[in-house]
Design a protein around this nucleic acid. Structure first.
Lengths: 211, 211, 211, 211
DNA sequence: AATGAATGAGGGTTCATTCAT
DNA sequence: TATGAATGAACCCTCATTCAT
């Protein structure tokens, strides 16, 4: 987000290539988060980055490539956090909760971008969907591993899609209106859905006793 | 002044207003499903509907208004189907399954449009998200009713968002590549997630004892 | 996505910015003088200037801005000529005549444009009026200076408006049909009106006997 | 061309032709005064008049024809008032003043329209200029009559143009900002200019005796 | 590497006018 | 006479992208 506090320029007279690249990426992140893909022009990005219009194309194939880069940079961050949870060796229930916590933390830190990628401002030419595919991949792999043993009825691919759809939607919705529901309630609900489904009433489970 | 260069209009009304409206709506549904919002022009729609370019604007405020109309027409259809399930007075588990079936049937019948609205070709200026909000409303209302009695931990709004996110993603994903996973597996998985969560836990779980 | 249908731009800069600007200005002056504001399109101007359509908007906000620029360039020229008269230190009568001469010379040199700005082809969205305001300003200032001493009854602002109205109308009328009345007669009449009013009657001046 | 002298509704069940005509004229007057010629559409006029779009063209050749009609109706009114002054047989000075009074009264009564016809909102496709020609005609005729006897130096046509230019500009300017200058001051100034020219300082006229 | 003027296809939208009913 | 749906040419303006410097 900030440009001023940069270590960088080591030798060059003008700006270094990577410095310019970074500035464009940063400008893109800021602007896309604010206005979405197609309400930002390549000139806007260049101007914000403090470079000439043509310079943009020395660093990115086209506008969508930058958008893609911005989105995936963020999403890779999310995936790493989620993967990190896996590496902690928590018991399943705790892991589910930890992942929900990471998701919400991510949504909080990238409120604007989350809205653009997963949510309503989305005019993102499928990039958001690609991002979900990306997340779903890991999820699916994890599910497969876990199910190596048993579970006939939960199809890993479907489950993965269902989970990322759920996460993305909830993250976007919550990021857009954080005031409405306390963070803890969101986490609790996500956890419960993943652990016991939506047929609430956890204790007695009345829904299972059916004639 | 300059009368000579005037175009000499050659045709006339002939069709009823509502007929024209319907044709535009139909043309829009076809084209948007095929190419998404911004790879369709208002001229395309008019041409496909067999009317003049200007006629479009006699019936719709602008291109997005038509898109919105097309999307909501479809989504209203889905909601009605889902609501219909509620009216059948089924036991909870059966209702969950019936809804999943309706969802998949809908995705099958509107394969292209589902992809555009909920999925990857989506550049829909937030219309898809509005559609999800629309679906989430009903869902949330239903959850509140059901929970009138108990359930402390499942927040209805969050749950509703989670569900529609899950449904939309799964529907879009499945509509885009129906070959991969058999319809029954998708339904089974959705049902299982909603009834028991994703923690499969193969052996002891009573919910697997079903005909 | 869709790269194939992209237009493959074929040319390049080559001309200096200011050169292009000048060409557009010149093209605008020619075309507006010939056809007035709204019978000239931005494409016409670009084509005449030998640049691409979009280039127009790199140099002018919109069509009206160019028109405005063209008009004011001319009107500034007129004002300078009129101001020049003031600087010659002529006696008042001679100054009045000199100004009338400048006005007619201007009308002769910019015959077409004068008709567009002040006259009948005018569809100029108020630009002609703004031009008159601009001229009236100086006129009013001059009148105020002169009247520092005396003159109760001639309101400077009103007088200035009256004068520019008179000039503009006479210039436009004469520019449109120069054959009708010899230049000298126009000048003589303008001078006489300003010096003695319209109550001609040369010899005895009966109109001055007023209560 | 003329509407006023029509014999009016004789039979019809629905609205009579002349009634419809009148409503259109009235709607036009209101709308044009408010927004000028090309910010009013033929649909606007029809809607305001409470008739269908097509009906407009049963009564007027095109939009400009209605505009023309509206303008000339007003200007004929002004000319009649000015002519009325001539018929009162006043002494010349008094007549000049009376005409100025009529002009200002007219400007006051038709404030909006005066601004559109003669003034800054003008985008009137030359109609305002035609209106001035119309006024100038009478003026010129009057001047010729008066000058039958003498006056070498005041060319009637030029004088007429000068006068209408002056009047129109002053009327438009004053109508646009009536607060600025009291009505009496405007009249007084117009009278003085016409009677003695702009070289103020009436009594001693020091400026004429110059070395 | 960077610059920035230029390109030009493309698209959305308006509105005067017609004419079958 | 009136209606009002339809017409379709016209026009402005944007913006992703190029390339000579």
């Amino acid at each position: 987000m900030d440009v001023s506090s940069r270590p960088e320029p080591r030798t060059a007279p003008a700006r270094s290539r990577s410095e310019t690249h970074r500035r464009l990426l940063e400008a893109g992140a800021t602007l896309f988060a604010r206005r979405g893909l197609h309400r930002v022009t390549s000139h806007d990005v260049a101007r914000t980055a403090g470079v000439a219009a043509g310079t943009f194309y020395l660093h990115f194939e086209d506008k969508e490539a930058l958008f893609r880069e911005v989105v995936f940079q963020a999403v890779r961050g999310l995936r790493e956090r989620l993967d990190g949870v896996g590496r902690r060796g928590l018991p399943p229930d705790a892991a589910v909760r930890a992942r929900a916590e990471e998701l919400l933390a991510f949504a909080e830190e990238h409120r604007e971008l989350v809205r653009v990628i997963f949510g309503r401002d989305h005019d993102a030419a499928g990039v958001g969907q690609d991002a979900l595919d990306f997340l779903a991949e890991t999820s699916e792999r994890n599910l497969r591993q876990r199910d190596a043993a048993g579970s006939r009825s939960l199809h890993p691919a479907v489950t993965a899609q269902a989970l990322v759809g759920m996460w993305a939607r909830v993250a976007a919705w919550w990021a857009a209106a954080p005031a409405g529901v306390p963070r803890e309630a969101v986490i609790e609900t996500l956890v419960r859905i993943q652990l016991s489904g939506t047929q609430s009433a956890p204790s007695e489970r009345p829904h299972r006793s059916r004639p």
